[in-house]
Amino acid sequence: MSIASDISDFMGWNGEDQDEVSVYVAGMTISGWQNVSIRMGLEVMPSTARIAFTEYQPDGGYTLSVDPGMRCKVLIGTDLVITGYVSVVETDTDSNGNLMEMEIDSLSIDLVECSAEFATYQMSSTNALAICQQVSRPRGVTVTSTQGAGNTDIQQFSVILSETAYEVMERVCRLAGCIFYDQPDGTVLLSPVGATQASGSLEEGKNIEHISTRRSLRGRFSEVRAIIQNPVVLFTPPDSDDYVSQMQAVSDPVNAVATDPGVTRSRPLLIPVELGDADYAVAKQRVQWEVARRYGRSQVIDVVCDSWRDGSGKLWTPNTLVRIKRKSWQIGQIWLIAEVEFVRGEDGSRAQITLMPPEAFKPEPLLLPMQSNEAVAAANSSIGDAGADKTAVQQEDI
């Protein structure tokens, strides 16, 4: 029997209210809500729910007993949104009885808080998905992927003994160029950015009740340039004009430059080329990523929507592309849902949604470990005894 059927049998609920929040724990369904907050996001792990309710359940005619550590499921209508554990239980007693508050975390809480366990702490000839699955398995969390995310072969990968499983997965997914986040059934999904498209749109004056924006130039640069990180011999004082030409000598061979047209004054950023980056391919991707990522993070839109669902009746979901329309814009723009919080209180139900440009979550291009190690070995093997006769010249590490 499904969870939805159990709830229907227990409460007599027929699904007419598609936004009815239900918590299924210890074979019981909790009702009598005072307020509800359910939060999910691309950078929110674990997904969480905070729910206040009366200890006495009028629908069932019994007093509810809930303890931290119990497995539970949170549903909105018939849609499962969180599978996890009760983490915190608080009670507040007054003349009107006992009010309880319960905090629920998705199963990934153990990936975030617990140290990683492996049969071996150094792996070779595997892919990112397999590493994430291995580190999550001891915590009872399943990892899946979509659209080929995590299929990147990682020839060599070492785990730091003090790392949590989440920290391991974060490093692995950066190497694989994908993101990972919670799923309603308690699994973790590896995915590219913007895996789905929402039906309908978020439109100011219609389903958007409130909107706020944040635009910033902090952390953005007019030019991002990759340089060869070698000792540079300074034949002239650093403040002379020749110093500029020497800087060009370490950047021109790479030919990796990206500009941000939104930054009008001179704000340069130099990034080093990774050792082993053949033909500077990663450096050329990296400078473009720096500009795009920094732009994406500098543009944030927060909206309060009057519905928890999009035009097709699907709950607003992180990593979903959605068209947002503002009165001041001539045409709508496609943004990415970074975070969503479903809130219900005395003033009704609202969805608080944070949106950013998709570029904000693009993973950083990185050189795979084996390629880097091979380059280091080659560099070390080429070092001879000639270094013993070094000429005393002024040097600066760039």
Rank of each mutant, 00 (worst) to 15 (best):
Q134K: 11
L202C: 12
V86L: 10
Q133M: 05
S87W: 09
R139D: 08
E167A: 10
E204I: 10
I104N: 07
S199R: 11
S191Q: 05
Q122R: 14
A176D: 13
S115P: 04
N207L: 11
C114E: 14
S199M: 13
E103Y: 05
V141E: 03
V135P: 04
A165E: 09
S106P: 04
V89F: 08
P192G: 10
T126C: 04
L161E: 12
D153A: 09
D182I: 10
V188Y: 10
S95A: 10
K206A: 10
D110Y: 11
P192S: 07
L99M: 12
N96Q: 11
D110E: 06
F157R: 00
D185F: 03
A176L: 01
D182M: 13
V86K: 02
V193T: 13
Q197G: 08
R137M: 08
A176H: 01
E113D: 12
Q156W: 07
Y85S: 04
Y166W: 15
A149N: 06
M102A: 05
T142C: 03
T78H: 07
A119E: 09
E101A: 15
D94R: 09
G186Q: 06
A165K: 09
G150V: 01
S136D: 01
V86T: 06
I104P: 10
D92N: 14
Q155Y: 13
T83L: 00
S191F: 05
T196G: 06
D92F: 08
C173Y: 02
T83M: 05
T120P: 00
E167D: 15
E90S: 14
Q147H: 14
G177I: 06
E167G: 04
V89P: 01
Q197C: 01
P192L: 11
L190G: 04
I160Y: 13
E167M: 09
